[in-house]
Structure formats: C-alpha cells, structure tokens
Write a protein that binds this DNA or RNA. Sequence first.
DNA 1: CTGAAAGCGCTTACAG
DNA 2: CTGAAAGCGCTTACAG
Lengths: 347, 347
Amino acid sequence: MTEGPVPRQRPTMRDVAALSGVSIKTVSRVVNNEAGVSPDLIERVNDATRKLDYQRDLTASSLRRSDGKSQTLGLLLENVANPFSSALHRVIEDCARDHGVTVFAGSVDEDPGRERALVAAFIARRVDGLIVVPTGEDQSYLSREVRSGTPVVFVDRPPALMSGDTVVTDNVGGARDAMAHLVRQGHHRVAYLGDLRSIVTATERSAGYRAALDDANLRLDPSLIVQDLRTSDQAEAAVLELMARTDPPSALFSGQNLVTIGAVRALRRLGLHRSIAIVGFDDIPLAELLDPALTLVAQDVVGLGSTAVRLLFERLAGSDQPVQHVVLPPTLTVRGSGEITGPYSTA
Amino acid sequence: MTEGPVPRQRPTMRDVAALSGVSIKTVSRVVNNEAGVSPDLIERVNDATRKLDYQRDLTASSLRRSDGKSQTLGLLLENVANPFSSALHRVIEDCARDHGVTVFAGSVDEDPGRERALVAAFIARRVDGLIVVPTGEDQSYLSREVRSGTPVVFVDRPPALMSGDTVVTDNVGGARDAMAHLVRQGHHRVAYLGDLRSIVTATERSAGYRAALDDANLRLDPSLIVQDLRTSDQAEAAVLELMARTDPPSALFSGQNLVTIGAVRALRRLGLHRSIAIVGFDDIPLAELLDPALTLVAQDVVGLGSTAVRLLFERLAGSDQPVQHVVLPPTLTVRGSGEITGPYSTA
DNA sequence: CTGAAAGCGCTTACAG
DNA sequence: CTGAAAGCGCTTACAG
C-alpha cells in the first residue's frame, strides 16, 4: 500500500523554540521585534526561523492580541469585474497595503441578500473594517457591526436607513455640468438615460439633469426620460426607440458607463453617431478611441478610494469624531461626442 | 470627563452558552448543525444566538479544527484593475463562493518581489490554497508551500523552475490562427507587437507569429518585430515609428490588450485605421464599437477561472493525481479590423 | 533579559 | 444526549 507524500506540518513557534533552545515567549519577542532580547538569542531564533522556514500564523496571533486586529479589510463592490469597481479596488488595495492590511473583495450585484451574506462572511473572518458600496435598500443592519467595533465606510453611494462615514461623488453637480455643456452646444431636447432608480447615484444624476434644464429655463419633457436601464442592451433598445419618434432628442445624457455603451451602439446602428450629441457619466476605457471620442463625466476614483481608506483607518485608530461626509467633484472631459452642435447652436 | 461609546464586545460561544444555560460544547454542536442535540436545547441555543446576535469566529474555529481549513483562498493577479485580470477574478469569486470560500486578491504588477510578499501575506493568514498568475522569474519558492499543505494552481501562465497544476490558453495556436487570418487577407508583411519577453505568454504568442509565417512560406523580417512593450503609450510610439519606414507593414498583430490599444491609437493618429489591418490578442471592452471594430483573439476566461478553482478544490480534497496541465483554445472574433485586405489579396 | 502559566474563541477526544 | 478537560498557535500578564 503506497501512501501519498505526507504534507509536513507547518512549523510553529514551539518548533522554533525547541530548535533554538529558548522558550516560545522569546521566539514571540524576536518575531515581533520586541526590544530587550539579548543579541545572541535573537540570532539563534532567527537562524532557527530560517532553517525551519517558519511563518507566523497571523490568525492565531490576532486571536490573542489585545487589539484583536486581523490586519484584514472587507471590500464590497458592485462587481469586481466592472471597470469602475475594479479601479476603486486597485486604489484601496494600494492604500491598504501601506498599512500592512490585506483585502477581501466581493461582488454584490445590486442584490441586498448578497450584500448581507458577504458582510457576514467577512465578519465571520473578523475583518478589522469594511468598505462598502451599498445597495439601495437598507444598511441599518450594519450599525450592529459598527457598535461591535468593526468600522464601516461607505463609498460611491450613501447608506440607507443609517448614518456612517461616506465618500461620494457630486453626482448632482456633475450631471448638471454635463447637461449645461450640452445646452451650450445648442441642445434643448436632451434625453436622460438612467440606471435603476433604487440606486441613489442614478437618482442624483437625474436630479442634476432636471436642475440643468431649470437653470436654462427649458421645459422638461418626461417622455425624454428613460430609467431603470440595467444593461447596455436595454440602453441600446431604449435609444433605438427614442430616435424612432417623430420628435427625437438632439442629444443624450447617459447616467452610467454600461448605459453609455448601449446608447453609443444604438447611435452607430442608426448612423447617427456624428449627428446626435452624447455625454455620459463614468469614465470608459477606450473612450478616446471611439469616433467621435466620448465626452464623459469622470469620477475621482483615486480620491474616493484613498479617502475611504483614510476614514476607515482613522476610526480604527479610535477616532470618535462626528460622522464624516466627503463629496468629491467629478471632471467633465471634453473629447468630441458632447460637442456636436444642436439646432439652437449660436456657433 | 466624557467617554466615547464603549464598543460592546462581540458575543462569544460562552455568552450564548450562559444565556441558554448549556455548555459551550452544546452551543458548538448547534452552531455546526451536528446531529444528536435535543430539540429544546437547539431552540434555546438558537434563541440566545439571535438575541445576542452571535456570529461565530471562523478564524478561531479553523485554528482548532482538525482539517485546519480557513475557507479562504488567495488570488494573485497581474492587476485587479486590468480587464482580463478582473474578469478572471469575478469567475473565480463565483466558483469559490459555491464552496463557501472567500477570496483575498492582490496585484503583482509583474514584480517578483511583490509576488513573494503577497504570497507571504496570504500564507500568514493561512489561506487554504493559492491561485497564481505567476511573474516570469522563479516560482520555486512555492513548492515549500505546496509541501506544507497549501495547494497552488497557476493560471494564464505556467510557473518557472517548478511544476504545478496549470491552466493556460493555447497562445501559440491562437497567435498562429490570427496570423493565418491576416495572411489570407493578402498580408505578407505583418508586424508583431509584443509585451515583455520575460512573460511566457508573450513569448508563446511571438512563436505563433513565426510559425504562421513559416506555414505560409513567408520570410520573417526581424525589423517588423517589436517587443518589451509595457504600456499603450510605448505601443503607440512603436507603431508610429514602424509606419514611418519606407517599407511599412500592411498589417499588425498585437500580442496583448494594452498594446492593441496603443497600436489603434497610432493608426488613428496617422489616419491609417481603415487601410492597415490589425488583429490583437486578448479581448477589449468596446472592441465592437470602434471603427473599424476590432478583430481579436479572445481567451476563455470562464474556462480558465473555473478550471483553476476545480483543480484547486480537487487538491484540497486530497487528490494526489499527477500534475495537471490544461490548455484552453482561444477564439478568433472577426469584427472588421482584421479583414482589411492587403496587397496580395485575391479577393 | 527570560520564561511558566493563563487565556483568546473555538473544536477535539473522551467520559458519563 | 451532554459536558469537563485539553489544546489549536499565539500573546498577555506576571514573576524572577
């Protein structure tokens, strides 16, 4: 009877202590760089550590540690594969690394049940804190976690039914700027294409759209507002329908990256991409390679991520300042698609 | 003197046991759904669990568990924000979730030191296994981890200086197909634009390029081969230079997504995007919206990710079958940029 | 400067 | 069916 290769167990502090002829407490001191160990013991312990390839078990360490920190952080994103989410993930990873913290990430897919399940999975693994892009319904269940000592910072969207540190983009202002830009190009009939109304950012962007019309004393035509678009296919269909009307818009404002992609696809299918203006919210990779290149309102992803991490670490350091709300301005990047002039152009 | 809100400690099994009047062993049995606990005790424990909002500490649990599993997995990607990496991440997240496993992900950025640091961080947190997109140098240090009982599966690229379960794309075949496609359109002078030669996939793709020229009895012109392109800017510059020659290529084969983007940018700058053909390796979001739309060789990301997870869980289940090497075919997606005909076209 | 004992929150191995 | 004791790998609190 042949046995597979028996996996030799990972060495423990006890093994290192035995090999170097000291107590495990001394090994612990050396491993943690505590002062007050004699140089020769330090050397003997380090030798043994190398010889055995000892790697401390951080989970056991944090179990007993007085601060109880696991050096771990949970990140809940809409979808790790979405360009905005993954860019945010990268920024947060880098900031967390500076603190020696490793990141668990998960995709929520706008599903409140999944949000709760992911939070439970992260809490069960005793993350030190959570950074959450919340899904529209109700985050009140998170206040328990905050009270239990796990700080939570919300990013991209504010939480519902609870208050907490939050870092968001000025969605109303960004949408308003984008719309004002289109109006300046001579567009009076601009359609709004939006994501799920349950998503706060979508609602805010539509509010910015309305505000800009108001600013310009333009009438709001409710039939030019299409919302609850979840996929680029739905957005494409919506634009095909809009443009088939007897009174189509001369420009589009799209409230999210997937929606923008679907809208552009529809305009190209209709051969209207050079005559109908479009400005979209959210940056899109390759936006500058399209023809015309896409004029977009881009969020400050680095600002969002780094501020969220900073707020989280301030709480972890014991800050009990009042709840922080940080709002970052987005940037309108002019590239061509938003500068197609409309019927009221004075140029 | 005012005190901040004292964070009430998370309840432990001891607290639940006290409240329900049983031993912690009984609480453990109920929490783990072990058979053989009387119905009324189950109910009392569940009541107390709810009342206290008890959430088991999985890290403590796995410390004592005989299998020692942390229900955690470490994923090393080139960059969590890269479209290919993040798509792979999402597939792996979903497969891992089916096993109740949560994913740590990190970005290596082609830096061997960072690869080792990330592995160390994941091992210190006692992940059950690792899925690694290796960086070209040397993965031999990982055999220690495998021997210590932490299985490793390599994905997208094979490891260097060690052997291990690996899931990769048929890069040679994919590149060969792409090149054969260009040759069929009448191109005899095709430039190859490649990533770092230290990246195995880049080397394989250049081998496929050469093989296809051979298949077609075409002369290889070394001056049409540009490698070690790391960014889209470098690729753009390289193409500008190539096209300024007295004998420029009539088509381009680009070996990676960022390189393709740079190449397209150059062609557009030169106004050559409708006359010079291009086929790229790796899918690119929005490829179908460019003009012409991009003909690309796309990897089977779902296959790569799901196979990697399957192999990992087979090892975790104790499989000691020989090392597995899985090679998945990529798919040439014809969209326009690769069908621009060349000087030797018979059409 | 060093170490033996106790304990972090849980599961194992065993006794009743 | 239930629980007291021991122990996972580490750190704390304390003694010398």
